[in-house]
Design a protein around this nucleic acid. Sequence first.
DNA 1: GCAGTTTGTGTACACTGTCCACTTGAGGCT
DNA 2: AGCCTCAAGTGGACAGTGTACACAAACTGC
Lengths: 215, 215
Amino acid sequence: MTDKTTPNPARKTYRHGDLRRALLDAGIALAREGGPSSVVLREATRRVGVVPNAAYRHFASRKELLEAVRAAAFAGLATSMEKELAALPPFEQPTAESARATLTAVGAGYLRFALAETGLFRTAFDGPFEPETDADPEKAGEGGMNPFQLLTNALDDLVEVGLLPPERRLGAEYLAWSAVHGMAMLAIDGPLYGRPPEQIGMLGQRLIGMVVNGL
Amino acid sequence: MTDKTTPNPARKTYRHGDLRRALLDAGIALAREGGPSSVVLREATRRVGVVPNAAYRHFASRKELLEAVRAAAFAGLATSMEKELAALPPFEQPTAESARATLTAVGAGYLRFALAETGLFRTAFDGPFEPETDADPEKAGEGGMNPFQLLTNALDDLVEVGLLPPERRLGAEYLAWSAVHGMAMLAIDGPLYGRPPEQIGMLGQRLIGMVVNGL
DNA sequence: GCAGTTTGTGTACACTGTCCACTTGAGGCT
DNA sequence: AGCCTCAAGTGGACAGTGTACACAAACTGC
């Protein structure tokens, strides 16, 4: 049945076809399973059924592979936020409620991703990230926006409906992002770990409330 | 001069004296220099001038050494917060200002440590942490309190002086902690990286303001 | 149908954590 | 004092990792 001469996923052709993509997918799977330290080059090649060095035709180093996985992780984060936004009841004009709900959705998507895809979330933030100056579409969701841009838009809405005075808009991204990111960390590694998701959700709501009131 | 038969820090006695402590110190130094992934067992033994396996008489595994280093990192964090608290002007009765200043100091100590001892800060949070249920004195500052306890006290003060309604006290730790921890992450890996410390300080002040107002 | 360039293979090296058997010597016993 | 014990450090080994170099295969454009 299994032919011992062909390693894992038996390959007929000498060329693989799209090894880069396959390695990236394997890397993503590894990151999902065990976070950044689990994306190991040799294991990725093993899963794809190719010799370790083959990876070097597509990635200069393990680090470069990891970086590609990180980009995918950011995209996943953005998608999670988009999904939460899409679940919002539709509205024509932005209102105070809608703007508030939008920001809440952004935060909820962030937290949900951290809880549901912890390995990827960890991977995304394992190293430097500057989404403001980074237009890489690989790091964006299906709508083409990265997590930071989604947040920025939500804050702009907040100003538009008068919930946030314009003079406090500057730097508000960092304050809001800090709060939500910190809570994600507490939820996956800290004292909030193991709490039922709905409880985290409530705390998240409260956190966003704090941000909106306190900004 | 240097005797080639004695490896690095020439040791006269076959027994080391306090190898555990020496290895831990070396581990801490490694963590300071390069974060958690840099605390490698073999390098620690090398620095101490002992054969790799000697470490196993004192730590069951690299992970256990890392854990000891993490504890020290938490202690360092607590100490940084204590230092900031000690720099506060003295006051007899807690007042609104003093309570606010106390919380600000707690946050400032947290951020300062993250910026000044990035490697240790990373190490501390590389893995699960539950300071509420952890009374390990190794993770406490010189006053005997760990970072979480220092925060808790500051929030209690806030209630005492009436800045925080008691009904909102429950869970406030998590909201405040989230905000400050998140900002620390943005400051060492995110878009706030490289900003002058005073700018981070200002943002931190603003963040604490947001927390107090929004809680 | 051939030359040249990609892409995957084979072999090798340095480095890591960790296992096992061995040696050393400090401290308690007689 | 002399001996014994046993914790503490040594030596050698192995599997696993990232990566460098030389080689083989097969797709590409002419």
